[in-house]
């Protein structure tokens, strides 16, 4: 029987569409999400190819190498800067380094920060939330009260406290940001596990003989994680912003690391004398956060089940 059946299966299955495919299609119909993806694409490209794009080493102090001053304003040849001057399209920073190269390398760091903290927070948050929602009772109570305690503090304040305890540094800042964002994910996963748990297909799996772990990881979680995608994308933006804030305060990335927040913090007193040194890192942070927010909003709309039958 399979011999005569299989070719047919393959041929006709081409028309079958999974829920993910529908989501993708809907996502690409939204202009704002596309803009977000384009911006993220540029960011990822820059982050990966920073060593080839950057005209200078981001750590290299240019004293004695070129004839440049501290905090020199941008010099762009096509915009009328004398061609005998070295070109620095975002100017020179307070330690006589090329600002443009540092911004490019900063993209690397920011993306790593965003993805690593959110991944860490999502994994822990999902496990905690899933256990709380699935098993309920006192387990649920203990986990969720713990999460409530974390949520009771303002996120950044708590992160500052954690970094102060652990000691300043990029890794500690990442840990702090991840811990602070766990409760949001745990709550989301718990809520959606609670609703999926009651669906008939879970009962069906139980009747078929599935044990609790099978039910939780194979049936419930795959159907409960959609809201997490949106929250995770928006969470990357928050994480980047928080990391920049911690670095700005001197608690995150330490000089000379080319991190946007710390670059901003280092030159904050020169806002009026050398505005380019705070303008470009600030702009970079803003655009990155905007990109993730646009994608997150687009995903939220694309995954919205209420729109499931509109505009396939």
């Amino acid at each position: 029987m399979p011999t005569e059946v299989k070719p047919q299966t393959e041929e006709l299955s081409l028309r079958s569409v999974s829920l993910w495919q529908i989501t993708w299609r809907r996502l690409f119909k939204r202009k704002s999400a596309l803009v977000g993806f384009a911006m993220l694409g540029v960011l990822v490209f820059v982050a990966i190819f920073a060593p080839w794009i950057a005209p200078y080493d981001p750590y290299q102090v240019l004293i004695g190498v070129e004839d440049v001053q501290r905090r020199e304003p941008p010099c762009i040849h096509v915009l009328g800067c004398p061609t005998d001057r070295p070109q620095h399209i975002m100017g020179i920073d307070g330690n006589v380094r090329d600002q443009f190269s540092r911004i490019l390398y900063g993209a690397r760091l920011s993306l790593i920060i965003g993805f690593s903290t959110v991944t860490f927070a999502i994994i822990l948050g999902t496990i905690l939330g899933a256990i709380a929602g699935f098993f309920g009772g006192w387990v649920d109570n203990i986990i969720m009260r713990l999460m409530d305690v974390l949520l009771a503090f303002p996120a950044l304040l708590l992160a500052i406290t954690i970094v102060t305890v652990l000691g300043p540094g990029l890794i500690n800042a990442l840990i702090a940001i991840a811990i602070v964002s766990i409760p949001a994910y745990a709550r989301i996963v718990r809520a959606s596990v609670l609703s999926v748990r009651e669906q008939d297909f879970v009962a069906a799996s139980r009747v078929l003989g599935g044990n609790p772990f099978y039910l939780l990881f194979r049936r419930i979680l795959p159907n409960a994680l959609t809201p997490l995608i949106v929250q995770g994308t928006l969470g990357i933006a928050t994480a980047i912003l928080d990391a920049a804030a911690l670095s700005f305060l001197g608690l995150g990335a330490q000089p000379p690391t080319p991190e946007w927040g710390s670059m901003l913090g280092a030159e904050r007193n020169q806002v009026f004398t050398a505005p380019h040194l705070v303008f470009y890192p600030g702009l970079a942070i803003m655009l990155t956060v905007l990109a993730f927010n646009l994608i997150g909003d687009g995903l939220r709309d694309a995954l919205d089940p209420r729109l499931a039958h509109v505009s396939k």
């Binding site: 999974s18 669906q199 008939d200 069906a204 009747v207 049936r219 159907n223």
Partner: peptide
């Protein structure tokens, strides 16, 4: 319990919520 479940099955009322939407 698992082995007795092989012999006892159920058909559900709501054909929409009784199938996992992510499972072919």
């Amino acid at each position: 319990l698992k082995s007795i479940r092989r012999n006892m099955q159920m058909i559900f009322q709501d054909p929409y919520s009784s199938l996992d939407p992510r499972l072919p």
